[in-house]
Write a protein that binds this DNA or RNA. Sequence first.
DNA 1: CGGAATCCCTGCTGATACTG
DNA 2: CAGTATCAGCAGGGATTCCG
Lengths: 116, 116
Amino acid sequence: MTENNLEMPAEMKESFLAIGTCPVSTTIGIIGGKWKVIILYLISYDICRFSHIHKLIDGISKKTLAEQLKELENDGIILRKAFPEVPPRVEYSLTAKGLTLRPIIFSMRDWGIKFG
Amino acid sequence: MTENNLEMPAEMKESFLAIGTCPVSTTIGIIGGKWKVIILYLISYDICRFSHIHKLIDGISKKTLAEQLKELENDGIILRKAFPEVPPRVEYSLTAKGLTLRPIIFSMRDWGIKFG
DNA sequence: CGGAATCCCTGCTGATACTG
DNA sequence: CAGTATCAGCAGGGATTCCG
């Protein structure tokens, strides 16, 4: 799990690593950007309401947060559930696909704890 | 490794997750941005020369690549070794600290393979 | 070859105000 | 509360040129 994941045939490297086929680029396309991993991190801790997320992420505007949440929803990573109440309430949660991102999120958390 | 890394005391969550103390933000500060993970991914496969990296990452300019490499070097993630030759040659490699990022990089690669 | 310097521009982001 | 709408600013990044 640490070292030798280099089983790739040498001749394949070039094309495999090229953007478009590169799996790392695929992942970055989904969770890249300044905020998405943090948003997913909070949601993975069941911090699911818009205002709560907004309060905890210092520096993000409501507009940006709404945009990022919508993108994550469109990519099938999170689920948006609106309750028809007054005042309105919306709760976000990870989908099955979103749950599969947790190893990435937690490995980033762990690295930050150890080496930050 | 998959599920229950939620051992955090509930009362600590808020302050712990706040930006500045948040370990995920720390990690994003180091490897965030559009290109850094891809750059590290290539270097982890021993693709170490400037021009080679530049060729493989479609869409990145020399200026941006140079900037990102310098930031990674300043953060102690990669090592820059210049050979006093004509034409000049520079090789980048992961430092010990950079090697510790590989679980993150490879988990992102694996996710892209499975769910892209 | 591996950058540094310059110019330039787009688009991301935040601030603010408004709505259901 | 959970957004949307609008505007404005600045910095991230590209294109080009030049240098050791």
